[in-house]
C-alpha cells in the first residue's frame, strides 16, 4: 500500500514547495523504497515532458478574424437596437409622411382656388371638378404607393425612417426655394 503522505511530498517536490527538511525526508525514503522511487521517476518524466511542451502560436489570421467578427457583431447590434425601439422608428415614419402631406398641400389649395373661380361657369366647373377629382385620386394613389414602399423599406432597414425624416426639411426648403424663385421670376 503506497504511503499517501510520501506521494503528496513527491508532488510538492515537483512544484518546488517542499521544505528542505521534507526534501531530505523524501529522498531518504526514496533511497530505501524501490516502488516509490519508480513512481517518483515517472512523475519526474511527466513533469519534464510538460515543462518542455511546445507553445502553440495563434494562426496569423486569428486577430483579423476576431476584429472582423467584432465589426459584424457591432453592426448587428446597431441594427437590433433600432429594431428594438420600434416606437422611435414608427414616430419618425409618421412625422415624415405628415411632412409629405404638408408638401402636397399647396397643390391642393391651388386646386381649390381653381374650383372657386370656376363656380360661375357650369361647363368650366364640370371640367375643373373632374380635374380636381382626378388630382385627388392621383395624390391618394401616390400617397398609398409611398406608404407601401416606406413600410417595405422600414421592414428591411429600420434606420431608413430616420434618414427620411432627416431629408424632409431639406426637401421642403428646396421646394420653398423653387416656389420663391418662380414668384420672383413672375414679378
Amino acid at each position: 500500500m503506497p504511503d499517501e503522505r510520501k506521494r503528496l511530498m513527491m508532488q510538492e517536490a515537483l512544484d518546488d514547495v517542499l521544505s528542505h527538511d521534507e526534501q531530505i525526508e523524501l529522498f531518504s525514503h526514496l533511497d530505501t523504497d524501490a516502488e516509490d522511487a519508480a513512481h517518483y521517476t515517472r512523475l519526474q518524466q511527466v513533469d519534464s515532458l510538460l515543462r518542455t511542451a511546445p507553445y502553440e502560436r495563434a494562426p496569423r489570421r486569428l486577430a483579423l478574424t476576431i476584429m472582423a467578427r467584432l465589426g459584424e457583431s457591432m453592426k448587428q447590434e446597431q441594427k437590433l437596437r433600432l429594431t428594438d425601439s420600434p416606437e422611435l422608428s414608427e414616430a419618425a415614419m409618421q412625422v415624415a409622411l405628415q411632412l409629405v402631406t404638408v408638401a402636397t398641400l399647396p397643390m391642393l389649395i391651388g386646386a381649390s382656388y381653381l374650383l372657386l373661380n370656376a363656380m360661375s361657369d357650369p361647363a368650366i366647373m364640370e371640367t375643373v371638378l373632374q380635374q380636381v377629382a382626378a388630382l385627388y385620386i392621383l395624390v391618394i394613389d401616390v400617397m398609398k404607393v409611398m406608404l407601401e414602399q416606406a413600410q417595405e423599406v422600414y421592414k428591411d432597414n429600420p434606420e431608413a425612417a430616420i434618414a427620411l425624416l432627416a431629408l424632409m426639411p431639406v426637401t421642403l426648403l428646396k421646394l420653398v426655394e423653387i416656389v420663391l424663385g418662380y414668384e420672383d421670376d413672375e414679378t
Binding site: Y55, R57, A58, P59, L62, A63, M67
Partner: peptide, 30 residues
C-alpha cells in the same frame, strides 16, 4: 485590436491545449 495582438498566442495555446483541436481552438479563442 492591440489587446488581441498581444494576447492571441496565450489564448490560442490555452484553447488548443484544452480542446486538442486546431480549428476548434481557433473558434474558441475568437
Amino acid at each position: 485590436a492591440e489587446l488581441v495582438y498581444t494576447f492571441q498566442d496565450a489564448v490560442f495555446n490555452l484553447c488548443y491545449r484544452l480542446l486538442g483541436d486546431g480549428p476548434e481552438a481557433e473558434d474558441a479563442a475568437q
